[in-house]
Design a protein around this nucleic acid. Structure first.
Lengths: 342, 342
DNA sequence: TTGAAAGCGATACCAG
DNA sequence: CTGGTATCGCTTTCAA
């Protein structure tokens, strides 16, 4: 930058003005500087810029206060990555709110102080009230991304998570190709308030009826992500449909399903496809209780949310392909070695 | 750091010495400084440190000069990410060497100047000569990682790629569950010199014979990653085994396989599992010519190689879970939206 | 063994 | 409109 100033015959301050497109420079001068920049092949050093600017990234994750393994994995990731990011002028905080409670989410968002928080990641239910609160938060100058379950694209800055309709279709394709012969299928869902759950269900149903007419989705139970509830509901389903050949566990609460299946002996004729790789589901896959797991990488989600929040704050561009969360398919054979959900 | 110096009653220089464990400080002084650090909850700013240190990361990728889609995707990633990394004091360069040519690799490595290159990523054949050259490069002070195909762990600093035995097993599991009934299987391999190809083949064969005795791996052709060669070899295989029910394409050269399959009309009874998501294989998956693709994310590979090379140069720690390259399984349904192999 | 001071590459405030 | 200069947090000579 010093070189540019010298070559262009102007001061450092002016070079800075041109570089950052700040106002108050004659176009003649801008030209001179730009020429020097081109000549010298100048490359800006972002670290130095951030240092001089004293930029801090204070990020907050608002997540449901549930104890299911997936949410706990997310929290663990936030804590783990937060520790490392301290060295990079960014802090990650977590705020837990009651699950499936739009009001709590709204209150949390409204309480945010934009002078103390630069960006927020929300993971929660989608209601008009929540949408408005998000809008207010953005109006106050904070960056907002939605995690795992989307909000309308006009409300948030970015969405970090998988295409849940596609995830449902993927589950259906696996189910259809793994099951032998005809039969009936059970779907376990979570909550009607969660957009991700609804989308998975929809994708599954559509592909199932399009491509596998020999399989019938006969029943579905709403487990509210509660292992115990799921476990209690299952016996009557099995009683009603003794010829069940497949189960799609589309939400959380897998431990309840696993316990039921393992207690009622091996089910060699049953194909089970579930969501989210956790210690429990991993073990179920290893033992053969589950046949496949559809996953979204929690480590990737948190890293991506952090990068997107920073980029939004800086009004900087980002790499679309890097931020795309994949729909991972895990079989027993391609399970990553233990030591992490990442 | 200024605060620490003040609280500890020493100079900035001394604080730096303690922080970086540099020699020449009395243990009494070290104690004083450490106490101040603890009191103040000091967090080091790595960006500022690198700035002051004028640290540059000059990284080189030595890759085979082939035109297959996977290698081209890797090169494209290197170029794309290299452009962004310029702002972060790191440069990525590519050096192409003749494929499957240990000698060329050795010469390239030996020609490296450690004062101009800080780290090297190699992707190539594994021979004693190559191993020695890698060893020499490390002795000269450069960091070395192997990409895609591994070298013995004692030679390189890190390996960036998938567990190819597990990838072969994964392919076998998919094949076994997708194929209906009995039949014969064809495996297409690449080169005997490439460790990754051998490992995939081995994993596939083992799981196939263990879990799917009804399926027989009857033939295999060595395609040398050459689409045209593969296309020419296929007719006689199909003539010899008209009842082929599955093909595992374990290396590169998919376009040849795809062309053959599409020219010889639809093969509804044939299950095809291939490696690497590329424009050609993606199209084949979409059209139903392929049933599944096993992939290793090229974007992730290059990012990971870069991070590991930097960490090695800095003797800094890294996040194992983030650097683990996943064995991706793609079906038509979970294909990432076009616009990248990432 | 310790300290003082000059940067690294950029930003920002205050003058002119 | 444009220039000078202090500063960000840390490293690195050079002296003492």
């Amino acid at each position: 930058m010093n070189d540019i100033a010298r070559v262009a015959g102007v001061s450092l301050a002016t070079v800075d003005r041109v570089l950052n497109a700040r106002p108050g420079v004659r176009s003649v001068t801008i030209e001179k500087v730009n020429k020097a920049i081109a000549e010298l092949g100048y490359i800006r050093d972002t670290a130095a810029a951030n240092l001089a600017r004293k930029r801090l990234y204070r990020l907050l994750f608002i997540i449901p206060e549930t104890t299911n393994e997936f949410m706990m994995a997310l929290e663990a990731e936030i804590a783990a990555q937060g520790a490392k990011l301290l060295h990079q002028r960014t802090t990650l905080q977590t705020l837990a709110v009651p699950p499936f409670d739009p009001r709590a989410m709204v209150d949390a968002l409204d309480a945010l102080d934009p002078s103390k928080t630069d960006g927020v990641a929300v993971i929660g239910v989608e209601t008009p009230a929540v949408r408005d609160a998000v809008k207010r938060a953005r109006a106050k100058g904070m960056a907002v991304v939605s995690l795992v379950s989307d909000l309308p694209s006009s409300e948030r800055d970015h969405f970090v998570g998988i295409d849940n309709i596609a995830a449902g279709r993927t589950a259906a394709q696996l189910m259809g190709r793994f099951v032998r012969g005809e039969g009936r299928i059970l779907v376990i869902t979570g909550s009607r308030l969660a957009r991700d759950h609804l989308e998975r269900r929809k994708g599954f149903d559509v592909l199932m009826s399009e491509e596998f007419p020999n399989l019938n989705v006969v029943a579905s139970i709403e487990g509210r992500d509660d292992p115990e509830l799921i476990r209690q509901l299952l016996p009557e389903v099995f009683a009603a449909y003794p010829d069940l050949c497949g189960i799609y566990s589309s939400a959380a609460g897998n431990p309840g399903l696993i316990r039921f299946l393992e207690e009622t002996g091996p089910h060699p004729e049953l194909t089970v496809v579930a969501h989210e790789l956790t210690p429990a589901s991993r073990a179920a896959l290893q033992s053969g209780t589950f046949d496949a797991i559809i996953n979204q990488d929690t480590g990737h989600i948190i890293r991506s949310a952090t990068r997107l929040l920073k980029a939004t704050v800086d009004k900087a561009p980002f790499d679309r392909t890097q931020e795309r969360i994949r729909i991972d398919i895990y079989l027993k054979e391609n399970l990553p070695h233990q030591g992490g959900e990442a």
